[in-house]
Design a binder for these strands. Structure first.
Lengths: 215, 215
DNA sequence: CCGCAGGCGTACCGTACGGTACGGTTCGAG
DNA sequence: CTCGAACCGTACCGTACGGTACGCCTGCGG
């Protein structure tokens, strides 16, 4: 049960979603100190119900992460008419969404939880976060990049490499520093600079992969 | 005691270093399941000694991370005669060292431990890892970058931005994926591509910040 | 040889927490 | 009204682990 990876969105009853919300809230505020008793108390339900619904602590954790991670949805970009301006706006939007999500408190908590989990030979949470984080972005971004290449607006060999470079240019050292609790990177400090960072990253990406550059 | 951040390298007796080595080994193999009893047994010492030397579990953890992290030393690059070729080699070397360290098993373990720690309002380990990881690299790289700029080989406004872009270009999504336990990124899989990745990142860095480009 | 400091091994304690059991309550079906 | 399913609250159990106490051994200064 705990090892099961649910690929398609599991339907939770509203009551169950309330429990998951409580669990997520506790996770965000209390860090990793998520206890079954605390969840039960916060959600006003009995521990027995928790165990009946989610199997064990890992099942509850997995369901919470899965459920929340699946909520993060990147906007779909119109791919039909793709001029230079539209492409740039799309890329910029991706950068903005990526940075916004990654610097969010919920995302930080989920990533921390998954990393902690991965430190105990249990990779299920890591896979979920990966699947709904970086990999989701990759799935969405790649078609855009390839459309841009087909339209002679971008130039690259491997869309995989282009995506990963984009990721690096946008995220830089922000995520790891946030995960490590760098006080110099307060939430407000980051969000204030998002627009400038997005623009800079997009500029750099086009400098590297724009049709004019990089012959 | 546990909150103390030791800035200068604490001198540990050989016996104490053996204990720290045992702790690190356990950390690497057993993930986060580091128990005082296990350390004591592995190091053939008594728990009482552990507590006498390190105060509490956090103190031992901090000492271990601190001691190991301080071992990671970036090579100092000769800054005196700086032609284009030497600069490029220096940058490349930094990229190589950064990737090699970050993908190492010990580094992954330390980062995971620090992230886990940071998920419990305790940021001491995070600060240590930050200080000896990204920030150490920054301290070493910045002078090189600025020397390159002074020599008209590089062109950038802020050396801080240049460093962070470099970090992003080199690390990309490798570190977070390793921390999350991505099976698709096996150790060997990464190390095999390090040279190619290093060259690509350096190329991109010079494309963005080389004197000829980016007017 | 004596005494003692440092350290090993082990037994022990307290607590926190995962997991279970059970009595009481609500609510819908028949 | 009755019955049973679902669920709440709570008490309880077992265990793992952080931290402490203590007995024993070793080595060394006097």
């Amino acid at each position: 049960m705990a090892l099961t990876i649910k690929v398609n969105e599991e339907t939770f009853t509203p009551r169950q979603q309330a429990v998951l919300t409580a669990a997520l809230d506790l996770l965000v505020e209390n860090g990793d100190g998520l206890t079954m008793t605390a969840v039960a108390r916060r959600a006003s339900c009995s521990k027995e119900t928790l165990y009946k619904w989610f199997g064990d602590r890992d099942g509850l954790l997995t369901a919470t992460v899965q459920w929340q991670a699946a909520k993060v949805r990147m906007p779909v970009v119109d791919r039909s008419h793709l001029n230079a301006k539209a492409l740039r706006l799309s890329i910029e939007q991706f950068a903005r969404d990526l940075l916004t999500v990654i610097t969010g408190e919920v995302s930080i908590t989920l990533n921390r939880t998954a990393v902690t989990h991965a430190a105990q030979e249990k990779d299920s949470l890591g896979i979920i976060v990966l699947e709904n984080g970086p990999l989701a972005i990759r799935r969405r971004l790649k078609p855009i990049l390839e459309a841009g290449r087909d339209a002679r607006l971008l130039r690259f060999e491997s869309s995989e490499d282009a995506y990963r470079t984009f990721f690096g240019l946008v995220v830089r050292d922000v995520q790891i520093r946030l995960l490590l609790g760098d006080k110099a990177l307060t939430q407000t400090n980051v969000t204030a600079n998002i627009e400038a960072d997005v623009k800079a990253a997009t500029d750099q990406f086009f400098a590297l992969y724009g049709a004019k550059a990089n012959p």
